[in-house]
C-alpha cells in the first residue's frame, strides 16, 4: 500500500470512530438532561469581585516557559542578538543559516538523497 492510501484509510477510520463517539454522546446527553448558562466555577468567589475580570493574562499563561525555564535563552536573545546593531543581526542570521544548512545536509545524506 502507498502512503496516500494509508493516509486516506487512517483518516476514514479516525472519522468513523469520532462520528460514532459523538453520536453516542449526543444521544446520551439529550436523554440525561442538562443545566445551561451557569456562572464559571471560582471556588465560591464571585466573578464581580475581580477588578480586571476573570480572564487570565498572557504573562501568566506563559510564565512557566518564558520566565521560569527558558529565561536565560530569552535574555541571550534579547541582550546579545536583538541589540539593534546591524552586525549583530547579520552574525545571528549567519549562525542560524549555518545550522540550518548543516541540518539539511545531514537530513539529505541520511535519507540517501
Amino acid at each position: 500500500m502507498d502512503v496516500i492510501t494509508a493516509s486516506i484509510l487512517a483518516s476514514i477510520s479516525m472519522l468513523i470512530t469520532a462520528l460514532i463517539i459523538y453520536l453516542i454522546y449526543l444521544s446520551v446527553r439529550s436523554s440525561g438532561g442538562s443545566e445551561t448558562g451557569l456562572e464559571p466555577y471560582l471556588c465560591g468567589e464571585s466573578a464581580n469581585d475581580f477588578k480586571d475580570g476573570i480572564s487570565v493574562g498572557g504573562d501568566n499563561l506563559f510564565w512557566g516557559s518564558t520566565l521560569a525555564t527558558l529565561r536565560r535563552l530569552y535574555e541571550v536573545l534579547r541582550d546579545e542578538v536583538h541589540t539593534g546593531v546591524l552586525n549583530d543581526w547579520l552574525t545571528y542570521m549567519g549562525i542560524w543559516f549555518s545550522i540550518a544548512t548543516i541540518a539539511l545536509f545531514i537530513a539529505t545524506t541520511a535519507s540517501g538523497g
Partner: peptide
C-alpha cells in the same frame, strides 16, 4: 449524571475534539 453547561463555554467543540482524539488512537 446531568451535564452542567457554563456561560461562554464551547461544549460541542470540546466533545468533537475528544471524539477525534479517540478516533486517532483507534486508527
Amino acid at each position: 449524571k446531568k451535564e452542567l453547561s457554563f456561560r461562554h463555554g464551547l461544549r460541542s467543540f470540546l466533545v468533537i475534539f475528544i471524539s477525534l482524539g479517540m478516533g486517532a488512537l483507534a486508527s
